[in-house]
C-alpha cells in the first residue's frame, strides 16, 4: 500500500512541476526521419548564426509528426512538422478540428530513391520499372496470362540482368519511401507489362487492380526492411547478390560500398532528379503553424533560413548532403516571407 501511495503522490508532484515549467523559447520540430538529417543540419547552422537557441528536432515518421502537429495550438505543441509526403486531406481536417487552421506548406527540395547493390556484386546496372514488378509482384503476366509469379532469377524475365536469385530489400510499409516505390515503380511496371489491363479484364475493379499491382510477393525473395537504410546496407553487405532500395543521400555517403543502377535509363543524381528525368523521386516538405509565428521566438527566422539559397540552394550544405534542390526555391522563399497559408 505505502509503495502505491508514495509512487502516486511522487508522480503527481512531478507532473504538476513539469507543466508549470512549460514556457519555451526554442522552436520544436518533429516528423519524418528522411527529413531529420536535413532539418538537423539547418537547426545546427541556425543555432550558430542567430541569437535564438538551437531548434529541437525529433523524428518519428511523417504521420506521427503530422499527428502531433495537429494536436492543437499552444506552447506545448510542436511548431513545425517535417514530412516526406504532402499533408493529406484527412490530416488537414483533423488539424482544423483541433484549431490548427492556418498551415504554411514549405517544399524544401526533392529526395531521390535509388536502387543499389554491393559494389563488387553482380552487375545490376540498369533497371526498368517492369523488372521490379516482375521480380516482386505475386501475380505477373506471362505469355499473355496472369499467373502466380514463377520467376526466381532476375534473368528469368530480362536477359540483360545477371543470372542470380532475386533477393530484394525494400523499405517496410511504415516508411514514406515505400509509398513512392509502390507508386513510381511497381504501379508503373504493372501498367507497362500489361498486367493491370489483364487484371481489369479478369473482372477486377480499377481500385482493386491498383492495389493488386503494388502488392509484394511473400515467399521470402523480397524482404521488407522496417529499420533504417543502415540495416538495408548491412543486409546487402552480407548478401552479395542482394539489391536494396536507398535514399539518394544515404547512397552518396556510402559510394565506397554501393553501386547504383539506372532506372529507365537515367542515372540518379541531383541533376537528373531536379529536372525530373529520373523517375523515382519525391518532394520533401515541412509545415508551419502560422499561429505560432510571433509567439515562438525564431520560428519565422528558422523557416526563412531553411529555404535560403545559402542552405537549400544547389550549392548549400543540404544539397551537399544529398537533397535535390528545388528549382522553384525562389517562389518558396517568397511564400515563407509572405506567410502564405495552404488554400490561399
Amino acid at each position: 500500500m505505502s509503495l502505491a501511495k508514495l509512487t502516486a503522490s511522487a508522480l503527481a508532484i512531478a507532473a504538476v512541476s513539469a507543466t508549470a515549467a512549460a514556457a519555451r523559447d526554442n522552436v520544436q520540430v518533429a516528423g519524418s526521419s528522411t527529413v531529420l538529417p536535413y532539418a538537423s543540419i539547418v537547426a545546427e547552422a541556425f543555432g550558430e548564426n542567430f541569437d535564438f537557441p538551437t531548434p529541437v528536432v525529433e523524428s518519428g515518421g511523417s504521420s506521427a509528426g503530422l499527428k502531433r502537429f495537429c494536436e492543437g495550438v499552444g506552447e506545448n505543441t510542436i511548431d513545425i512538422a517535417n514530412a516526406s509526403r504532402a499533408i493529406r486531406e484527412k490530416e488537414i481536417k483533423a488539424c482544423a478540428e483541433a484549431g490548427v487552421t492556418d498551415i504554411i506548406e514549405v517544399r524544401i527540395g526533392y529526395d531521390g530513391i535509388v536502387f543499389a547493390s554491393q559494389i563488387d556484386g553482380p552487375a545490376f546496372t540498369a533497371f526498368e520499372p517492369t523488372d521490379w514488378f516482375n521480380a516482386l509482384s505475386p501475380k505477373v503476366l506471362k505469355d499473355g496470362e496472369l499467373v502466380d509469379n514463377p520467376y526466381t532469377m532476375w534473368s528469368d524475365f530480362n536477359a540483360d540482368l545477371p543470372a542470380v536469385e532475386i533477393n530484394a530489400f525494400i523499405p517496410g510499409t511504415k516508411h514514406g519511401t515505400r509509398e513512392v516505390f509502390e507508386e513510381k515503380v511497381l504501379a508503373v511496371g504493372c501498367e507497362e507489362t500489361g498486367a493491370m489491363e489483364a487484371m481489369m479484364a479478369a473482372g477486377m475493379s480499377e481500385d482493386d487492380a491498383e492495389d493488386a499491382c503494388i502488392a509484394v510477393r511473400t515467399d521470402g525473395l523480397s524482404v521488407d526492411i522496417d529499420g533504417d537504410y543502415t540495416e538495408t546496407l548491412a543486409r546487402i553487405d552480407s548478401n552479395p547478390e542482394g539489391v536494396g532500395v536507398f535514399g539518394l543521400a544515404f547512397y552518396e555517403n556510402n559510394t565506397d560500398k554501393l553501386k547504383v543502377a539506372t532506372m529507365s535509363g537515367v542515372a540518379p543524381s541531383t541533376e537528373t532528379i531536379s529536372t525530373g528525368e529520373y523517375p523515382v523521386s519525391r518532394p520533401l516538405f515541412f509545415y508551419i503553424k502560422k499561429a505560432h509565428i510571433g509567439v515562438i521566438p525564431g520560428l519565422k527566422d528558422y523557416a526563412e533560413f531553411f529555404v535560403s539559397d545559402a542552405i537549400a540552394g544547389p550549392n548549400g550544405p543540404l544539397a551537399q548532403y544529398g537533397l535535390v534542390a528545388d528549382p522553384e526555391l525562389a517562389e518558396t522563399q517568397q511564400k515563407v516571407a509572405d506567410e502564405v497559408t495552404m488554400g490561399n
Binding site: L36, S40, E44, E58
Partner: peptide, 10 residues
C-alpha cells in the same frame, strides 16, 4: 519515450 531520433546539441 522519444529519447532517440533527436540531436542532443544543447
Amino acid at each position: 519515450i522519444g529519447m532517440v531520433g533527436y540531436i542532443a546539441s544543447n
